[in-house]
Design a binder for these strands. Structure first.
Lengths: 150, 150
DNA sequence: TAGCAATAGTTTAATATCTAATTATTAGAT
DNA sequence: ATCTAATAATTAGATATTAAACTATTGCTA
């Protein structure tokens, strides 16, 4: 974004690449999650439902890790999903610190219904790239993401 | 993320590429914005200061467009920057609908101080890729982002 | 010139998001 | 057996974020 920034080539390259990375990601996310508004679901709520759908019941800390969010945040998102009867909290008997999240029947029906649309939206968005290009992009993102000291 | 999703090759490829794209972006953003906590600045506040720093005074709608945010959001972020005396709102005389945002002296000093660190953080993060790879990534992101019907 | 459509900004109501502090529970160490 | 460190979840307090409704202003048009 800083059009009038004058740094070294290395600096302007890093800045410019970062801006393009962020813009592409936000654009794809916006386009592919637009359909969620029909179901009054947020991106985060969809993320939680999707995790439970594909990976099965799990505790909130695990959901937080998979979605790159804090446990405090997951508490809020799950509160809202629970209000709508889409997920259920079940305190673990083995270790009472844990709360296992389960999809309710309503939650399962909903994610079953919208997930195929979601996949089609992503496929459609990535038509902008050839299969080779998608693999290159995936590979570069993986390399970039993995080589950070967090 | 949906490890146990079984779709066509095209579908799994789009899903997998998207997940890697998001993770890389969020990781880089987290790593390169960590230093903002020292100044009690949020990523959004930094974005507004940076826009004003590099592009000069501009109205809030323009800031919203540059930062891919709603004008309602910019109102809130600017409220918080204004409370701290980092930016100033000046109503335009030509067209009284517009409010031009200016960096105050304090705002200018702050962004001048932290921006070099920010650039160095990005340069460091992108060391994970060679210069060629960065250019490939930028090019792929640009192509991907531009070919969406928003 | 009166009126309407468009635009900038704000407000409202809701959800998201974080850090830090807190509670409850567990596991390990002495 | 007790104490302590770690972990899961929540709460508190703050900021971010959006859509939709609203106010103020402007420009166009009939």
């Amino acid at each position: 974004m800083p059009i009038s920034f004058h740094g070294t080539k290395t600096e302007t390259e890093a800045l410019s690449t970062y801006v393009k990375l962020v813009r592409a990601t936000e654009t794809i996310t916006a386009v592919t999650h637009r359909h969620l508004a029909d179901e009054k679901l947020t991106v985060s709520q969809f993320g939680v439902l999707e995790s439970l759908y594909h990976l099965g019941p799990m505790c909130q800390a695990e959901v937080a890790r998979k979605n790159l969010k804090s446990t405090a945040n997951i508490t809020t998102v799950v509160d809202n999903l629970e209000k709508r009867g889409l997920v259920e909290r079940i305190r673990s008997d083995q270790d009472r610190r844990y709360i296992t999240l389960h999809l309710t029947d309503a939650g399962l029906n909903l994610i079953r219904e919208i997930f195929p649309d979601h996949v089609q939206g992503l496929v459609n968005a990535f038509r902008a790239l050839t299969s080779d290009e998608q693999q290159q992009l995936a590979s570069l993102c993986k390399k970039l993401g993995m080589n950070q000291q967090e």
